[in-house]
Structures are given as C-alpha cells and as structure tokens.
C-alpha cells in the first residue's frame, strides 16, 4: 500500500529531515513510527498525506507517486486516507456530530448519507451519547475519538496518526490505541508516529525506528498480517 523508495527531504532552509529512506507498508498492517523528536517522523508522516513533497525519491500510495501528484489531485488522495493529530484540530463552534459530518459535507455527500455514516462512526468510537456536545465539553480522550471518527467516516483504507496520544494521560492513551487496533482489525492500515514507548512495547506490532533522518531499525511484530 505504501512504498517509499530512496526518499530524501531537505527543507528550503537547508534542514535535512530525511535521507535515503526506504519503507514498505502492506495493506492491513499496523506500524508504529518511533524515534526522538526531530528525527524525521513528522516529516515522513507529512510526506504520506502530501503536506510536504519529497526532495528526492518516490513516495507511492496505492502505486500513485505523490511526488508527481498535481495540486488538484490532492483532495482525491486525502479522501482515501484519514489523518489525526496530537492537537485534535476540531472546530470549536461545531458540535461533535457537525465536526464528523463536516468531512462528508465537504466532499458533497447528501444529508441522509451524512447522517447515517456519522452516527454509525460515532457509535464505533463510543461517543453515541455525546453527539450534540461541543468539543470544549469533552475530555481529551473523547476529543481524539471525535477526530478518529472524522478521519474514518468516509471509510478510507489508511489511517495516519501523528502523536495521537501526545496530549493524553496513560489510561486515555490506551483507550485511543485500543480503538485504533480495533479499526485495524476491520481492515484499515494504520501508521502511527509516537513517543509512547510503553504502548509500543506492549502492543507487539511492527516498529520502524527513525533517527537522524534514516530508518535505523525495522522490527516486525508478532502478528504480522502482510498481504491481507
């Protein structure tokens, strides 16, 4: 599903974020991306949803080279992936329902579809009772669940998570990771950048370690399910 071939990223200010990175992630995998701050994790994640463009090499998602992607094709790419962040990025003046429905409205779905998909996704993340609440009335964990629901509401094949538990306490963090694991079991590929080593160890998934812009370790998990 994801292929990085000899990818380097040098920012306009000269900072070398990634150097000659090769990485393959198959459909249905759950991959942790770990490494110290400034190692290049975030850059790698940004290349995947085309917020940044690789300076050299190829970034392929479903055999589409993102380096050559036209700007006008970015919306179509993003409709096939969900992205969640450390800082949630919810709209404060919209309710939980509206925040999730927003992702469907902007791609032109009709009211009935929006209502059905949004409610079933909020049910999946366990927020059926908070449909009418505003983000400020929710805990951090609940807010991140809304983000997960929004990221997945149009059923993408790939979920990208950039430090999704960075702002959460340990118990809440586990709640989110369990949710991502559940989603992964339904068939969605998950790539998660994180600092939470305890979670990484206990989950026993594939771990890709990035340091100084290079992949220095790629350890398969116990339950590898390549090719599903």
């Amino acid at each position: 599903m994801i292929k990085l071939k000899n990818v380097s990223k040098i920012y306009p200010n000269g900072a070398r974020a990634l150097m000659g990175v090769n990485l393959r992630i198959a459909k249905g995998e759950f991959v942790f991306l770990v490494g110290p701050s400034g190692a290049g994790k975030s850059t790698l994640i940004k290349l995947l949803y085309r917020e940044e463009i690789a300076t050299r090499g190829q970034v392929l998602i479903n055999n589409i080279n993102l380096v050559r992607l036209k700007n006008s094709q970015i919306p179509a790419l993003r409709r096939n992936m969900g992205v969640i962040f450390q800082d949630f990025k919810l709209l404060p003046n919209k309710t939980v329902f509206e925040n999730v429905a927003f992702a469907l409205q902007v791609i032109g779905k009709n009211k009935k579809e929006i209502r059905e998909s949004t409610l079933s996704m909020l049910d999946l993340v366990g927020l059926s009772s908070k449909v009418k609440a505003f983000p400020s009335e929710l805990s951090g964990g609940e807010q991140q669940r809304v983000c997960v629901a929004r990221a997945l509401v149009n059923r993408p094949g790939l979920l990208i998570a950039d430090e999704p538990t960075g702002n959460l306490d340990v118990d809440t963090a586990w709640g989110i990771v369990d949710l991502l694991d559940k989603i992964n079991k339904y068939g969605t590929t998950v790539v998660m950048a994180t600092h939470a080593l305890q979670i990484v160890e206990q989950m026993n998934k594939r771990v890709v370690r990035v340091e100084g812009g290079r992949i220095i370790e790629d350890k398969a998990g116990e339950e590898v399910r390549i090719g599903i």
Partner: peptide, 17 residues
Amino acid sequence: EKEIQIMRLVGASNSFI
C-alpha cells in the same frame, strides 16, 4: 484558518473551500 486547514485535510477541493 483552522476550518480551512481541516477542510483541506478531509479532502475538500480548493474551489469548494
């Protein structure tokens, strides 16, 4: 800005934004 950012993130086309 945030609204626009999120619109872009979930795949809204430029003209739609």
